[in-house]
Nucleic acid binder design. Structure first.
Lengths: 279, 279
DNA sequence: CCAAAAGTGTTCCCACTACACCCATGT
DNA sequence: ACATGGGTGTAGTGGGAACACTTTTGG
């Protein structure tokens, strides 16, 4: 949580589309439609791991009680994937992360009601004394393309922005009320994340390069909110080829030293995938 | 393939957004942006089964040698899923089908080059002597949300449209050159389709209500382009609870009569899903 | 009786599960 | 010495894979 914010308008901020000052915001409202595609946004469920819990990054905008997922617009000349990375870099200052598109959202009634949209925006932009008229580009219905990201909790530094009142890392098991359909987006992101957790080295972004078995064990229990037998868990991870045991051990605490592991360089082929049903 | 087309302008066609006459097309070009969201389209890979082959429905527009997937725009007041169903109904006259969103496409260079887009459109709309100027709503970059559908091959009746020169059911193993990134879209649709084939009763749309084991066996071999052992295949389908064996047999040909099967009413729970890795 | 196509059962093996005791370390 | 927490092995089971002969039917 932060209470102060900068209002420097640097080239870098312009490039990244951050809004740090009232002027930035007014410029965005007035001219954003020249830089960005209207009717379309990207929302991103950013997952981190801390305190033995899987957490998602939430943001609260001015004028709102509900929380939101970080999101943004696609520049007119920008590839979709590039936009997703840029938006995340804007919000978290991270460029090295696991990012995956998972669904396009355009059915929720809260996204279709023009009145709701307008009210919603006006509460935010009241902070710069702007009211959107009916045909304003921001007042229209917006579809959103959902991404989820896995990031190193510790290296995230959320960028203060003028309209962002606060942010929070929230345990995914206890989500507060969220704006629009962001609850649905988060839940769907979780489902997809969980289904990928044995095929892709998803956990790589959530752990240090070298980690102990108890650490990754606790991580998987947090992600899947389920408990696993230590011995079977180790066997599975090794037989999938996901991790490799190192010779090193870590010396901590008044007990036996755990071995270190690292993720296999090679992405897991097909072993944990859907049952293949061969000939 | 058809060579003639109607040019009746009925209320029904207007509602469905079909373009049957030059007037329809001109109206679409001039006023489409009032009815539809710009910058965003839906493309649909429609799969059918015929001749022991999995086929996809392709369309060739006026002025083009390459083929396209059927697609369309989202109405401004229309939910995303509703738009996908409507577009399919427009093209195939089908309303009862399996339809699933699988990815949003917005990275392909062919979708980003303004010049390519404009040339592309102008070749089509030359048929009605229309040329789009630079700031025309159709001349801009468009992202596409990909859906795939499974339909009963026999009951598809492709609606003639003014700009559609011909359509074709094409074996998915031998795709001709496709417009834009439609090849990528089709391939990705296939990947997702294949990965779902043991969890969802996907084949239901592709077979008659009652079918024989050899029939569904050949269908699965066509979908997955892989051969299966008859005995193991039957065991798997039954143990997944996907199909139910009936007492009836079908009497055909100079050989033993095959039993009939039907799909289970209950959607398959979780049995064929990704390995669960319980405690 | 023959050709064509469909029906069916068994063995092997591996991966998933369940389960409990010993070992290293710091205080 | 002891408390803490990490390391490890085995037996049982169930599902997937491989594999070939018999049965029905129409001509």
């Amino acid at each position: 949580m932060y209470t102060s914010f900068g209002n420097v308008y640097t080239l870098r901020n312009y490039i990244f589309g951050r809004m740090n000052s009232p002027q930035d915001v007014v410029d965005f409202v007035d001219n954003g439609h020249r830089r960005y595609l209207p009717h379309l946004s990207i929302d991103c469920a950013v997952f981190g791991y801390h305190d033995q819990q899987l957490k998602v990054l939430l943001i609260r905008y001015h004028g709102h009680e509900n929380w939101s997922l970080p999101g943004g617009f696609i520049r007119r000349d920008e590839a979709l994937t590039a936009a997703a990375y840029r938006i995340l870099a804007e919000k978290t200052n991270l460029t090295d992360l696991f990012l995956q598109q998972f669904h396009a959202f355009g059915d929720s009634p809260t996204r279709l009601s023009r009145i709701a949209i307008q009210q919603n925006h006006n509460r935010v932009y009241a902070k710069v004394n702007v009211a959107l008229n009916d045909d304003h580009w921001l007042a229209e219905r917006t579809l959103s393309i959902g991404y989820f990201a896995l990031v190193d909790y510790a290296s995230v530094h959320v960028t203060p922005e003028f309209l962002v009142e606060e942010y929070r890392w929230q345990n995914v098991a206890f989500l507060p009320p969220l704006q629009f359909d962001h609850h649905e987006i988060t839940e769907k992101a979780l489902v997809v994340l969980r289904s990928h957790v044995y095929q892709h080295p998803i956990a790589r972004a959530l752990l240090p390069e070298k980690f102990t078995l108890p650490e990754i064990h606790a991580l998987y229990e947090a992600i899947l909110s389920k408990q696993f037998d230590r011995r079977n868990f180790r066997k599975r991870l090794l037989s999938l080829g996901l991790v490799i045991q190192l010779a090193e051990q870590r010396k901590i605490g008044p007990h036996r030293s755990p071995f270190l592991y690292e993720f296999a360089a090679e992405p897991v082929e097909n072993k944990g995938a859907v049952r293949p049903f061969a000939a």
